[in-house]
Structures are given as structure tokens and as C-alpha cells.
């Protein structure tokens, strides 16, 4: 049973392996070429922080010896989009016990995408075990990528120009998967419009956060019109249980 869970998690998380290895490696290379610290500090940061854009920002903050209060605020703002991620997983992580702590810790963009896109059975306990393994595997790929990159950055050079496209390709693939699950392209158009608007009118550091606020605004706005559907579904479910 647990071996089977492991296989499922491995299959689901494999695309992230190919995304995290190059992305982690680019952080690692950046870290070891910009800073004078030992190369293994990079995978250590991968273990304790586990955030792509956060760690990339961390390199530039470390270079300029930024004050810790400012570091704290910068990280909160950069990661603010994660506040929205939890919203869609409240139900899935409910009663996950000790695993819940790690599931929340490991909720990166990519883990979030995988956990919200995959098909789920009725067996909630088992699904939480699989969620936990997917998070653990993603974390391991990330640590590996950061470590390899930092080591390579200190020891050799090769032309990996453009390899970061793997992550964009992953987001496109997950977008299509979401569309297939929902059978509706509405949220995709809202997201694309929000992204392009913030890209055109806001500074680079704030684009992600503002686009996410825009999506939330649209979803809140059209919530009253859809409210009845969820209530009806809830009543139907509790009627089925009885």
C-alpha cells in the first residue's frame, strides 16, 4: 500500500523534477558565483526555506548585507501569494495531523499546482499520505538542484542558456490540466488578463502579487451569482451521507 502511494507520488511529481533541477541549479550557480560562502550553504537554504523566487531574492539581499527587518518584510511581500494557495487546500489538509505542518511548509508554486490538479479518491487519509510524499519528493528535487548548481558554479562551466524555460513549460502544462479538470476556461482568461495587466502597469517586483489580488477581486465579485451552487452541493452531499 505505502509502496504504491510512493509510486503514485513519484509519477505525479516527476515533471517537477525536471523543473526544479534546472531552477534549483540556477539558484545554486547564482549563489556560488555571487557570494563567498561555502557551496553547501545553497542546499542548506533549500532544506530550510524551500522557495524558488524567495531564495533567488535572498542572493541579492545577501550580496548587499541587507538589514534583517527589511529581509523579513521583503520575504513576506514576495511570498504573499502563498496566502491564497492555502485557501484552495483548507479542506484537503484538514485533520492531516503531524503531516499538516510539513504540507504547509512545502506549499510552493509547483507543489500547489500538483496537489490541486491531481485526481482525488474518497479515501482522505490515503490522499494526504500521497500529498505528503509529493511534497517530500519535490523538496528533495529542490535540494538536489540547488546543491548541484552551487557545486557546478564553483567547479565548471557549460552553456545552459534558456534551460529556465522548463518552468514556464510546466506552468503551461498545468494550465491545460486545470482546464481539463474544470471543463471551463473562464478562470484561465481571468488569470491571463490579470497577469498581462500587471505586467504592463506595475513594477516587476509587484506583478505577481497584484495579478493575484486582481483574480481574487474578480472571483469575489462573481461569487454572489454562484453561491447557490455550492450550498446546493453541500446539502446534497449531507443528504447522501444520511
Amino acid at each position: 500500500m505505502s509502496e504504491k502511494n510512493g509510486l503514485i507520488a513519484l509519477k505525479v511529481s516527476l515533471p517537477v523534477f525536471f523543473g526544479y533541477l534546472p531552477l534549483g541549479a540556477s539558484f545554486g550557480v547564482l549563489f556560488s558565483t555571487q557570494l563567498d560562502y561555502a557551496w553547501w550553504i545553497a542546499p542548506l537554504m533549500a532544506v530550510t526555506i524551500f522557495a524558488g523566487s524567495g531564495q533567488l531574492l535572498a542572493v541579492s539581499l545577501l550580496v548587499s548585507f541587507t538589514g534583517l527587518t527589511q529581509v523579513f518584510i521583503a520575504m513576506l511581500l514576495l511570498n504573499a501569494r502563498h496566502v491564497f494557495y492555502g485557501l484552495s487546500l483548507l479542506e484537503a489538509f484538514k485533520d492531516a495531523g503531524w503531516r499538516k505542518f510539513y504540507l504547509i511548509f512545502g506549499l510552493t508554486d509547483e507543489t500547489y499546482s500538483l496537489l490541486t490538479s491531481r485526481a482525488r479518491s474518497e479515501d482522505k487519509g490515503r490522499e494526504q499520505q500521497i500529498d505528503f510524499l509529493i511534497t517530500l519528493f519535490n523538496h528533495a528535487y529542490w535540494i538536489l538542484g540547488c546543491g548541484i548548481g552551487a557545486w557546478l558554479g564553483k567547479n565548471l562551466t557549460f552553456d545552459a542558456t534558456g534551460i529556465e524555460f522548463a518552468l514556464i513549460a510546466l506552468f503551461i502544462v498545468l494550465c491545460i490540466e486545470q482546464y481539463k479538470v474544470l471543463q471551463s476556461s473562464f478562470p484561465i482568461w481571468v488569470g491571463a488578463a490579470a497577469g498581462l495587466l500587471s505586467l504592463l502597469f506595475f513594477p516587476e517586483s509587484q506583478q505577481l502579487l497584484i495579478a493575484m489580488l486582481l483574480i481574487c477581486a474578480v472571483l469575489f465579485w462573481q461569487y454572489p451569482a454562484n453561491k447557490h451552487r455550492y450550498k446546493r452541493r453541500l446539502i446534497k452531499e449531507s443528504a447522501d451521507e444520511q
Partner: peptide, 30 residues
């Protein structure tokens, strides 16, 4: 918000946010 995971609004956001956020990531990074 842990106690309100069954709330219709949480369900509504949980249903549409993931697709929207994926589209944002593509629209910004591409």
C-alpha cells in the same frame, strides 16, 4: 480560516483560483 473550509466562498475560490494562478504565472513569465 481552518474552521471555514466548508464555506461556499472557500469552495468557490478553491475551485477557480488554481487555474487562474497558473494562467497568471504563464502570462507574467512567458
Amino acid at each position: 480560516l481552518g474552521k471555514h473550509s466548508n464555506h461556499p466562498l472557500a469552495q468557490h475560490l478553491g475551485r477557480y483560483l488554481p487555474a487562474g494562478i497558473m494562467a497568471v504565472l504563464v502570462a507574467i513569465f512567458l
